[in-house]
């Protein structure tokens, strides 16, 4: 894999409710283990609280809640993926994230139109790598809760 390619198309794979999602590695500042989450009052339900990450208070968003899955307690594999997008740093809580892979453009395809109305709005593309189906998240859509988020933060 080429550097550009690899740079452009490197992704962090994370697991959520049995499904593998991919997040562009360019957007990821760092990754941390889920330790102390301090809940914040009047925050949306998908925001679990805030955490300290590298000296900064980062809101921790439960992708499960955001995606409408049943929440579950955190464990050793649970990860907090700190993303920096649109000058905002947000922590995404996932069930697990252990892989860093490159996905080429050819491997990516648009999500089906039938899904676009509902869950498709969070998906940028769907990739197929080594017979694995990986859903590439649209961070813009995922993080489009700025108002409420701003109000919360």
């Amino acid at each position: 894999m080429t550097a550009s390619q690899s740079f452009d198309s490197t992704f962090i794979l994370c697991e959520l409710a049995g499904t593998t999602y991919a997040i562009r590695s360019q957007a990821v500042r760092q990754m941390e283990m889920v330790e102390q989450i301090t809940p914040v009052p009047n925050a949306p339900d998908f925001v679990e609280g805030v955490v300290f990450s590298r000296g900064q208070v980062v809101p921790a968003i439960s992708l499960r809640r955001r995606f409408g899955f049943e929440p579950r307690p955190h464990d050793l594999k649970s990860r907090l993926i700190v993303i920096s997008h649109a000058n905002r740093i947000v922590g995404l809580l996932v069930d697990g994230a252990r892989e860093f892979i490159s996905i080429s453009e050819e491997q990516q395809q648009d999500p089906p139109e039938a899904l676009a109305a509902m869950s498709g709005r969070y998906l940028q593309a769907i990739a197929r790598v080594n017979e694995r189906l990986i859903l590439i998240l649209d961070l813009e859509a995922v993080l489009n809760f700025s108002a409420s988020l701003d109000e919360a933060v």
Partner: peptide, 30 residues
């Protein structure tokens, strides 16, 4: 084993963060 698991998870985490940093660094971090 929990300790070993923790260590392996942290190691994985560290390697992922390293990969991310390396990817940022571009060619230098290759």
């Amino acid at each position: 084993i929990g300790t070993i698991n923790l260590i392996s998870e942290r190691t994985n985490l560290l390697s992922l963060n390293a990969s991310i940093e390396a990817a940022r660094a571009g060619e230098a971090g290759r």
